[in-house]
Design a binder for these strands. Structure first.
Lengths: 203, 203
DNA sequence: CATAAAATTGACCCTTGAGTCAAATTTATT
DNA sequence: AATAAATTTGACTCAAGGGTCAATTTTATG
């Protein structure tokens, strides 16, 4: 009988895993480019070249450019979801839960790789619908935290949705100015942003 | 001798004025469309149709699509500048000046017509440079207000630029969710956003 | 080594949409 | 009405870029 190696060592020889990895790399590279130059200013050929590939090779891993954009959105939202779930219900009160989550989200976005795209209008039909639904879900989860905080008295009153819109803007705007390795580190940003958000809401 | 009418009555017969007006209307209509569907998802033909014109007619008023995008940016920044200048140095302290300005900016953006575009990467060469320079100037003017506030003790310490990035995000994110005539009125948004910003910064 | 599956390629097709141009139409002026 | 200037149009050109396909190279396996 053949000896079975550990899964981790077998992984590099696992075809499906390899495929999935490469596919993810494509999405990542594309996301990076989209973030910097925008979806429509980035051609498939460019994405391919960045990976040392040919445009045609890309299409072996992906069905369309639009699909890539879609997956870029989903990738971030998955990470967001995980982050929110991880802290769900924890923290002394709504405000402190919110602070933790917000801080983690900033760190997530400044740790290179993931970037929050804003170009939803370039997605058509169901794709756009799905992404918007997804965004809505996350926003409403965060809104729930805010509501919790308003109930337990840690967060000042006001329209909860509007409250969320305000600081979600800060996250989305990150892409426009944040440069990894620049004067402002991810941790610094997380710290100051969180303080600013927290004080803005504290009762 | 011919009698001279008031300028206001003569205006409709003033060729240059007419031209300028129509041109402005083109920029406005385009800006509106860009905001909703994005620059690249809006064709010149669509812009024209929205005005009851033909694509070729647009080119009578404008040299290129890119020029339109450029002017859209400039138009908003002009309005921003005016708003900031109007309140320059006024207010009991930095924080109150900042609050007033911020509130006015929100109102400006929710009063239909003007919209803050984010697609800078679709501009090439000098156009992009100019817009970024312009954006930088405004940000630094606002940053100056923040600095004033930190000096006079009304605003808590921290990196001033980072402070500004935080709440400028809220303005830029407006486009993604604000719908004129919806549940959340411009005035309401202005009020709550300003409170949130103010409390976030108050010493 | 032979074979099949996986991965990659170059050449090609085709649509979309920006921008042009000469001609037609409208508007003001004498 | 005649003329010149201002507007507007339909028909066209052209390049960019997304996507396809048949053929080739690479990789794993018996």
């Amino acid at each position: 009988m053949k000896g079975q190696m550990q899964t981790s060592l077998k992984e590099p020889f696992n075809r499906e895993k390899q495929f999935a990895n490469k596919r993810r790399a494509v999405i990542r590279a594309a996301g990076e480019a989209f973030r910097r130059r925008g979806y429509h200013n980035t051609s498939m050929t460019e994405i391919a070249k960045a990976l040392g590939l040919t445009k045609t090779a890309l299409y072996y891993y992906v069905n369309s450019k639009e699909e890539i954009l879609f997956e870029c959105h989903i990738m971030v939202y998955d990470a967001f979801d995980e982050c929110v779930k991880e802290h769900k219900g924890k923290g002394a009160n709504g405000l402190s839960e919110l602070s933790t989550v917000f801080s983690e989200l900033v760190k997530l976005l400044t740790r290179d790789g993931l970037s929050l795209l804003t170009d939803v209008s370039s997605l058509s039909g169901n794709w756009q619908k799905d992404v918007l639904k997804r965004r809505g879900k996350i926003e409403s989860r965060v809104t729930d935290i805010v509501k919790r905080g308003m109930k337990d008295g840690s967060i000042r009153g006001g329209d909860p949705q509007l409250t969320v819109f305000f600081f979600m803007g800060a996250l989305n705007w990150l892409n426009a100015w944040y440069a990894p390795g620049g004067r402002l580190s991810g941790d610094l940003i997380a710290e100051q942003f969180t303080a600013q958000m927290r004080n803005g809401l504290a009762a």
